[in-house]
């Protein structure tokens, strides 16, 4: 018996791995989903999400979310930290690619009519995921604290603030006051690295579980 077989058997004896893995491994994927590249878009978005988690954890180690330190710490990442520039740029590119992939994935689902019974709720979860992905982008845009991030956030919170009835509260909750400052930064940071990642992880699990239970919708 080879070493890897022995290791597998050790775990299999204790956790019944074979029983657990076989239905996943043998689960049939429809032939058109394997051959048609349009079915890759959701997977591409998920890959971008994984890259964003990895690079994001790295950035959080060097980033300081205060108006005085934020810009300097990002500058430090770009200039002094080994591979810092590459990691931050990768975070930037993966974020934009993820949003594009999510949008294209939604267009495929729409034009193929894949949201129909029994998949209505998975569409709703999907639209929520799009909303969360763009909120990720919006909250991350402020963090470098440069001219563009400050003024774009000013306009963005202004736009959200002029929604009738709820707008006032949205902008108060987002900014933590009447103007963009230290309170806004820590809020955006908490939203970007804690609230949104937990929410998106739960919704992604639901999204994938529903695909697994209901199967991939077919035929264009």
């Amino acid at each position: 018996m080879k070493l890897e077989d022995k290791i597998f058997k050790w775990f299999d004896d204790r956790f019944k791995l074979k029983e657990l893995l076989t239905p996943i491994i043998k689960h049939p994927a429809p032939e058109y989903a394997v051959t048609n590249p349009l079915y890759c878009l959701g997977g591409i978005a998920f890959l971008c999400f994984l890259i964003l988690v990895g690079t994001g954890v790295f950035l959080a180690m060097y980033y300081k979310p205060t108006p005085l330190e934020a810009y300097k710490s990002v500058e430090n990442i770009m200039i002094a930290v080994p591979m810092g520039s590459l990691i931050r740029s990768l975070h930037h590119w993966a974020a934009n690619t993820m949003i594009a992939a999510v949008m294209l994935h939604m267009m495929r689902i729409y034009f193929m009519g894949a949201y129909k019974k029994p998949r209505e709720l998975n569409w709703v979860v999907g639209v929520t995921l799009l909303l969360i992905t763009t909120t990720f982008g919006f909250s991350g845009y402020l963090l470098p604290w440069d001219q563009l991030s400050f003024w774009a956030t000013k306009i963005g919170t202004g736009i959200a603030g002029s929604i009738p009835i709820i707008g006032e509260y949205i902008s108060l909750i987002l900014m933590g006051g009447t103007d963009i400052g230290a309170e806004t930064m820590t809020r955006f940071f908490a939203i970007h690295v804690m609230i949104l990642p937990i929410t998106i992880a739960i919704l992604l699990l639901m999204h994938f579980a529903m695909v697994r239970i209901q199967g991939i919708s077919g035929r264009l």
Partner: peptide, 12 residues
């Protein structure tokens, strides 16, 4: 990411 790095303008 290596050809077009993420930008950083003047401080806010």
């Amino acid at each position: 990411a290596s050809l077009y790095p993420a930008g950083l303008l003047q401080p806010a």
